[in-house]
Design a protein around this nucleic acid. Sequence first.
DNA 1: GTTGACGTTTACGTAAACGTCAACTATATT
DNA 2: AATATAGTTGACGTTTACGTAAACGTCAAC
Lengths: 151, 151
Amino acid sequence: MIGKQMNANTKIDKDDRVQFSITELAEEFGVTSRTIRFYEDKGLVNPERDGTTRIYSRKDRGRLKIILRGRRLGFSLQDIKKMLDMYSPKGEPTGQLTFTLQKCEEQLEKLIAQRTDINEAIAELEDGIAQLREHLASSDSAADGCKKTIA
Amino acid sequence: MIGKQMNANTKIDKDDRVQFSITELAEEFGVTSRTIRFYEDKGLVNPERDGTTRIYSRKDRGRLKIILRGRRLGFSLQDIKKMLDMYSPKGEPTGQLTFTLQKCEEQLEKLIAQRTDINEAIAELEDGIAQLREHLASSDSAADGCKKTIA
DNA sequence: GTTGACGTTTACGTAAACGTCAACTATATT
DNA sequence: AATATAGTTGACGTTTACGTAAACGTCAAC
């Protein structure tokens, strides 16, 4: 088990590739190429060019992966950019790490707060739904002129 | 215990009022008056006018309350408008009720899904934070600048 | 030699829910 | 009368994360 994969049809594993087109990455990550170009606009990736065509390295691909994960975790593109930016300078990655750590902790708190809000909203909604069901049941049995004034 | 309240300084309880100014309501609900006017733009409230001055009835106040609660529960203004719109037509409130009920159930599902996402993100973040801490710890012990436990 | 697929850049559009600012009016107080 | 206070309208600004259209280049295939 030295190589990652090597089946009969000489299918090249993506992890063995060195270059990627924008559409390849877009498909792989389930975003549109427009999105990837947008990230470039925002300075999150800087692929090489063959003329005008973008050529993405494995590193670029890695950055994209990080970006997308960041988005999933609810970070803003700006924050992600900072995390990414502070990463490349050689030497002490401590600055970047503490920054990222801090952002993570902030985000964690935000998410926990959000969860609390959502839980409250869910409880309220479940309550409301139950009441609505009651009203519906009674107004079904009652006749026309029965408006309960909920407002 | 007939009236709601009646203390010495004859302070009029808000629930006894019949009219409200925009700023009163804005303060009461913790929004700006611009926000309330915005809701009017969107057709969510339609206060009477004394000339050009808006005069809000208790009903309007009730609608505002509903709007704000709707927002807290994550409904769009559009949805809230529909719920509100379908209320006023006299007769069978069944249509409105079922609509609202449906929207509530939809929203409930959305919120539950969101909570799931958030929970996953939280788990991932907690994981990441732990790892970051490890990295920091090891790079701290290696280098000179030994600032152990981060703020 | 044309078709089609894919690429490029530039720039404006969208959605939500307001905020901000300017200019104006109306009423009340000094 | 002049100022203060509260209200009005309209238009444009803000934020985030893209979408969409225009107008064009390039390259291989048929």
